[in-house]
């Protein structure tokens, strides 16, 4: 498991991350989430143009024997989905914070970012959860 999570991302309690680039955010699941899930076999993603509120389910990610809903960390409209995951879902396992990204959204309200965790906070959040 990743010892510390980088500070250039924001993290949600549902274990999604978001990388902000201007008005666009790139979203995926964290290294912790992919490890809990095991080998990813399928990622279900929304259509481009769909809009979601913060915390709304926008898709799901599946391993052989488990399914997890994906929740959007902040409200926005889907502007791009990672189509490559259809053929290579294993990227979510091998590079969760990079090539394993899932959707890009146009951020509706950047103020919502303040409700998310940064690296250090998420690192200890994961540690606490693991100790349960």
């Amino acid at each position: 498991m990743m010892a510390t999570y980088p500070d250039d991302l924001y993290y949600s309690k549902d274990h999604e991350w978001i990388r902000v680039d201007g008005e666009t955010g790139t979203i995926g699941i964290t290294d912790h989430a992919q490890e809990q899930l095991g080998d990813v076999v399928y990622v279900e993603l929304p259509a481009v143009g769909a809009t979601f509120e913060a915390g709304a389910p926008f898709g799901s990610v599946e391993s052989v024997k488990a399914v997890s809903e994906l929740y959007l960390p902040i409200a926005g409209e889907i502007v791009e989905v990672n189509a490559a995951l259809a053929d290579t879902p294993e990227t979510v396992n091998s590079d969760p914070h990079g090539a394993g990204w899932m959707v890009r959204v146009s951020i509706k309200d950047a103020a919502e970012l303040s409700g998310l965790m940064r690296g250090a906070a998420y690192t200890s959040y994961v540690q606490d959860e693991g100790g349960e």
Partner: peptide
């Protein structure tokens, strides 16, 4: 593809 099924996805 058993993730479609009730024993995993239950109400979904």
């Amino acid at each position: 593809l058993s993730t479609r099924e009730q024993h995993i996805r239950r109400e979904k």
